[in-house]
Design a protein around this nucleic acid. Structure first.
Lengths: 162, 162
DNA sequence: TCCTGGTTGTTGAAGGCTCAACTATCGGAC
DNA sequence: GTCCGATAGTTGAGCCTTCAACAACCAGGA
């Protein structure tokens, strides 16, 4: 706890915007998840993993790199990849250059699942987000997101500041 | 599956904005949760429940109303309130006018926990979101959020359209 | 060589959320 | 009054994420 600074509460307008933002993100991601789950039987987390793996070649991606891109903890990713491997969508291969490492690789079945899921998912993102906003608004949202993400990334991991 | 419409993929710029938005919301809520958990021992979900209950009087709130405000499922809320009750922060009282109903009520201890947690949480929201954006940007974010939330609320529960 | 500190990834337990099933109650039609 | 569908809330099982502990490996220095 910092020294007893006087709390700067949010103004009424700020509070309204803040609550609206919380509600919008909750509703949006819940809906995207439901749509994706219903149409393709994948969770958003599954989709993220498969999408990242589809961006790279045959060699796959190191677990830690994949965790960094998806913002998953290493533990979460490890469990997720284990489940995807059991479903046949991903396989694990030892990393040749570093014997500690493991590469996650998309299987043919995994690529097929992603190809099957992608059009519906993109349509869902359009329907509930992109096409609801003016091009200018969507551009603003991107800029705002960059500011937020950069600021948080710069203030390192809070558990590491000791 | 709808008729085989040609997929309108996202443009490169749209994809960048979309991924940035996903990352920003993940990072933001994770950080807010960590801050709140570390400083006050509450999850964001706990805080939401306590905050909503502090907005009403002695009579508390019907479980279904509380679920509506927090966007929790009734089941999730029921579990959450049970835990908060075990912690002594909330108590359940039968609703007088409807014998099916239950009202959740903030205890003195619950109000004290909220009062203790609120300054730090508001500071966290300011630090990672409000104070990072220009007033104009934060206003834009509120407007964008309203559009998204309204659109999703209007397209009713997807499981109910049959 | 042998330490030593840091990194990589996995594992199992614990806790939270979802889903389906269930009880109890309400309110209107007959 | 009695049915009947709808609503309110709870519960337990199953799944997913977090957390802490762990084994294996790397890299650099004494």
């Amino acid at each position: 706890m910092a020294p007893p600074t006087k709390t700067r509460w949010l103004t009424r307008d700020q509070q309204v915007s803040w609550r609206s933002f919380v509600a919008a993100t909750q509703l949006l991601f819940d809906r995207l998840e439901d749509d994706l789950e219903g149409a393709a039987g994948l969770s958003l987390a599954d989709y993220e993993v498969l999408a990242r793996l589809s961006d790279v070649g045959e060699e796959g991606l190191r677990m830690s790199a994949l965790a960094g891109q998806t913002l998953f903890s290493r533990s979460r990713l490890s469990h997720a990849v284990r489940r995807l491997e059991q479903s046949g969508l991903v396989s694990r291969v030892p990393c040749p250059s570093d014997r500690r490492g493991t590469n996650a690789v998309l299987t043919d079945e995994g690529r097929a699942a992603l190809v099957a899921a992608a059009p519906g998912h993109v349509a869902s993102v359009r329907e509930h987000l992109v096409d609801r906003l003016s091009p200018e608004q969507f551009r603003q949202l991107g800029a705002i997101s960059d500011v937020i993400a950069d600021a948080i990334r710069r203030t390192g991991d809070p558990a590491a500041s000791c």
